[in-house]
Design a protein around this nucleic acid. Structure first.
Lengths: 230, 230
DNA sequence: TGTACATCAGTGAACGCGCGTTCACTGATGTAC
DNA sequence: TGTACATCAGTGAACGCGCGTTCACTGATGTAC
């Protein structure tokens, strides 16, 4: 009976999810560097060796958490993208979604954008999920570009070769000036989010959301996206 | 004899420094969350309990490392500031100094600007050293402002109260628009540095230094600093 | 439908290791007279 | 200059705890005939 088979398979999926959920909970208390298989097992009422039926090692569990985090962030950002109409509004919405997700999942944010976990190297399987937000920002610029709603940022002559290389790699249909500005804005977005999340704005910025929306708008303009353009 | 007294005091300073140096070395291998007093002692050929003559606990050692890191970064930035003439050049030089220090001290950078160490709360003694780079950036804007070389960035009406509050706190002599842009640029600077350092630019940006200098220039212009202005 | 067999989740003990912190102590260095 | 005393760096044992991973195993679930 395939129902029986399905039961075992379903149990496996459920236990795997329970392990990851508990591990995410521990991320909050201990941080990624101290994430402990034994503590996860203990909390689930299992014996630590049982986890090895689900993840071959601690690092594989970490990898699963990282991929899940990138995917969860990516989904939030993509939902915000679809819920907005013109490119400028989409840019702001995607930036706000990144910030909102980070505030809702601070420890998962730290896992993917904080200090690297010493002794751990992320495998290539993390690359596509990690690229989702960046691809979304490129897509917004592309829409604006095709709709003639994109200014061309300045670019010093000595950076042109690098800008052309980046454009060829990331978005051959966009001007190199735009691609360069996009990459910078992408990194700067995470500077804003990280500073708020990690406490650097304590006693400095109070209206965090208002400040962020304004800064996100400045980032958009740096890329050449203007409010109200289509 | 005060020479004798001096010898004991000097020994204390030297051992304290040796402990911090070894701890910094271990930061690289293990990360802050896993920094271990016993491992530091072992490496120095001491018994672990001996470290308690120098630091009352592991967290106090961490605090010392954090303060040293902020001060070391602050000194690099201040040296770069003094070595340049006009405000725009100083801005670029200070940004480049932050990046250079981060590349030279990646694990100390992660300690102060990466994920917070779980279970550790930085005491107030870390606040003044942490403020050094920010104060430098404010000072540069002030010099430009006094020399009439500062444009006034845009500011949406709904952010004006917060902007005025921040200006009153951080730099009452500067326009609120400028202060707001400064805070954003400050956070964004660390986004650029962090992305390069933590590997997010792998397979994306190749000419890291050229890219960074351009982005730092864009940050300056966002604050209203124009190249060649005095 | 019933039986023999294979799969595989979970157990429990063990290996060899690490940690922060406390405490009573030794012995060298420094101070006061 | 010499002596008695105080200071304090460093020792070594102990407390009570944690970790990742391996391995032979039990027993329930699932499969093939």
């Amino acid at each position: 009976m395939s129902t029986a088979h399905g039961a075992r398979a379903r149990a496996r999926i459920e236990v795997t999810a329970a392990i990851k959920d508990e591990a995410r909970r521990q991320l909050a208390a201990e941080g990624a560097a101290r994430l402990s298989l034994r503590a996860v097992a203990r909390e689930l009422g299992m014996v630590s060796s049982a986890l090895y039926r689900y993840f071959p090692s601690r690092d594989d569990l970490l990898t699963a958490l990282i991929i899940d985090a990138y995917d969860s962030l990516g989904e939030s950002a993509e939902a915000a993208h679809q819920a907005s109409a013109d490119p400028y509004a989409r840019w702001i919405a995607v930036c706000a979604a990144v910030r909102g997700w980070a505030l809702d999942h601070p420890h998962e944010y730290a896992l993917i954008y904080g200090s690297p976990v010493p002794g751990y190297t992320a495998p290539d399987t993390t690359v596509p999920p990690a690229a989702r937000v960046g691809l979304l920002l490129i897509g917004i610029a592309r829409d604006a570009h095709e709709g003639q709603g994109l200014d061309r940022p300045a670019l010093p002559a000595d950076l042109r070769p690098e800008a052309e290389r980046m454009a060829a790699d990331l978005a051959p249909d966009l001007p190199p000036e735009t691609v360069t500005a996009l990459v910078a804005a992408w990194a700067q977005l995470y500077g804003l989010v990280g500073f708020e999340l990690f406490g650097q704005f304590n006693r400095v910025v109070e209206d965090r959301e208002g400040f962020f929306r304004h800064a996100a708008g400045q980032l958009a303009e740096g890329v050449g996206l203007m409010p109200g353009s289509v």
